[in-house]
Every structure is written in structure tokens, then in C-alpha cells.
Computed example of a mutant assay.
Amino acid sequence: MYTTDQIQKRVDEYISQFKEGYFSPLSMMARLSEEVGELAREVNHYYGEKPKKTTEEEKTVEEELGDIIFVLSCFANSLDIDLSEAFDIAINKIETRDKDRWTHKDN
């Protein structure tokens, strides 16, 4: 298993071996949108009303989530953003803003 720091380093090691390097932010956004669309398609096949065609390639929700993590790591690396720090900002905001939004479980 990997930490976000390890994921970002591994992705950077992979991308750094190519002259082309990271895509531009706009291209990265398009690529992330494409991967999220592929995840939506898989979720629809597994949990929705649209079964796969017999000719369609077998993919899994897990595989698509992995693709999203890879592209998200590329995006973050290309902009010199630490995903752990970005997550910390997001979770602190959510825990503050939404702390009383949902019904708490009785312990």
C-alpha cells in the first residue's frame, strides 16, 4: 500500500523518464474528466440499469478508480501540489462546515 506522498513520487518517477513530461493543466483536466466518465460508465454497468454489451472490454470500478488516482497525481505533480496537504485542507473544511449536517450515529 502507498501513502499519497509515495504515490506522487512513483508517478513522478514514471513520468520523468519521458521527454514530454506532464501534460498541460487543460489537457490534464480533460484527461481527468475522461477517467471520471469511464468510472461513471462502470458504476452504471455494475449498479445501474445498463448492462455491458458482450463485445465490451471487461473493466472494474477498482481499475477506473486507480486510473483516476494516477491522473490526479499527475495533475497535482504538474502544479507542484501535495495531495496530502490538499486533502487536509478539504477534510478540515468539510469537518467544520458539515459537522452538524448529517445525523450522528449513537455510540
Rank of each mutant, 00 (worst) to 15 (best):
D12S: 15
F70D: 11
D100G: 13
A76G: 01
D98E: 12
K53L: 15
I89L: 08
E57I: 14
K99R: 10
E95G: 06
K99Y: 09
E63V: 02
E56C: 02
M1D: 05
V11Q: 11
R101D: 09
D12T: 15
A30V: 12
E34S: 03
S24N: 05
D82Y: 03
D88T: 12
E42A: 03
K53E: 14
F87P: 06
K50H: 11
L26W: 08
V61D: 02
I69V: 10
N92G: 15
G48W: 02
M1W: 04
D5A: 15
K9S: 13
S16E: 11
Y2D: 11
P51K: 03
R31Y: 06
I81Q: 04
E85H: 13
L72T: 05
I69E: 10
K9V: 15
Q8M: 04
E35F: 01
H45T: 07
E95V: 04
M1H: 07
K9M: 14
D12E: 15
T54E: 13
E20C: 12
N77W: 01
I94R: 15
L32I: 03
L79H: 01
T3H: 03
E38W: 00
D12W: 12
S78R: 02
G37L: 02
D106K: 10
E64M: 03
Y14C: 11
V71F: 01
G66A: 08
S78Y: 00
N107K: 08
E20T: 15
S84V: 06
H45D: 11
I81S: 03
K52A: 03
Q17K: 07
E85R: 13
K93E: 15
G66Y: 00
T103R: 09
E85I: 13
F70K: 10
E35Y: 01
S84W: 00
I91F: 08
H45M: 14
I81M: 07
E13R: 11
E57Q: 13
Y46V: 14
G66I: 01
S24Y: 00
L39K: 04
D88W: 08
P51L: 08
E35T: 03
S27N: 10
